[in-house]
Design a protein around this nucleic acid. Structure first.
Lengths: 127, 127
DNA sequence: TCTAGCGGTTACTTCAACGAAACTAGGTGT
DNA sequence: ACACCTAGTTTCGTTGAAGTAACCGCTAGA
């Protein structure tokens, strides 16, 4: 019942509104995948992440961590130890990202050869 | 056999090299998802896509289509009809993207409420 | 005291993406 | 002849994301 909306077209299997794009941009951006990958294994401190991902600048790391924290994917814990330390941990919500991300990384791993030969074909045909 | 690589650390379940990032940037970018979504249903012409996605500019649509074509995700077919027409179709390789993309869009749909409440919590605590 | 590490912030710059608009080039209708 | 459709390309300007580098307050160790 009430299937009266969405019948004139075949494309309502998923809608892609701006909310989808925005969230994907926040979560699948340049550095998030690597950070998530590390934090899935174990909580890490700011400097640990910097050392683990040498290519990321301090500024970008801060920005990315804040964004992931804001979206509830990771948690920032200030440890009141003597010198002071900050630890980043993945949240339960963040863990649910693992499976979809793994699937698409797996896609990349298995299909990369096909993609590369398609690129060669395309580049060779300088039509 | 030959499991001798990758044992000193827990983080080799997936590696994220530059190739992964590059391909994801090519395939999960701003407009690709919507285009793929449409082409999965039926082949479409250039102007059909423009009308279906009014927010995309002519230039960006061309660029995105060329990139998807180069990566073997879609195919461009020039139909020798009287006025001339160009049709874009999804390839078998492109179809294999459907399932991973669906999974992550499903993640967005189901987790969006949690993300939004996390955002409210974060924004309210103006620490 | 001087130096180094931690966890950032701020200011400046650079770069690529994106859009708007004009232009092309063939065909069509009136 | 004129205007419009298709499928783009080209030019120009804006914007935003990212990097560099400097600085900050705090603590610890030599």
């Amino acid at each position: 019942m009430t299937r009266d909306i969405a019948s004139d077209d075949a494309s309502e299997r998923f809608e892609i509104g701006a909310r989808h794009r925005e969230l994907l941009d926040h979560v699948l951006d340049k550095w998030s995948l690597e950070i998530l990958n590390l934090l899935c294994d174990r909580p890490s401190r700011f400097s640990e992440l910097r050392r683990a991902i040498p290519a990321v600048s301090q500024k970008s790391l801060t920005t990315t961590l804040r964004r992931l924290e804001r979206n509830g994917i990771i948690e920032r814990a200030v440890l009141s130890t003597r010198p002071l330390a900050v630890e980043y941990l993945i949240t339960p919500l963040g863990k649910t990202l693992r499976s979809p991300i793994d699937e698409i990384l797996h896609w990349v791993d298995t299909k990369m050869p096909e993609v590369e030969s398609a690129r060669r074909r395309f580049d060779d045909e300088a039509d």
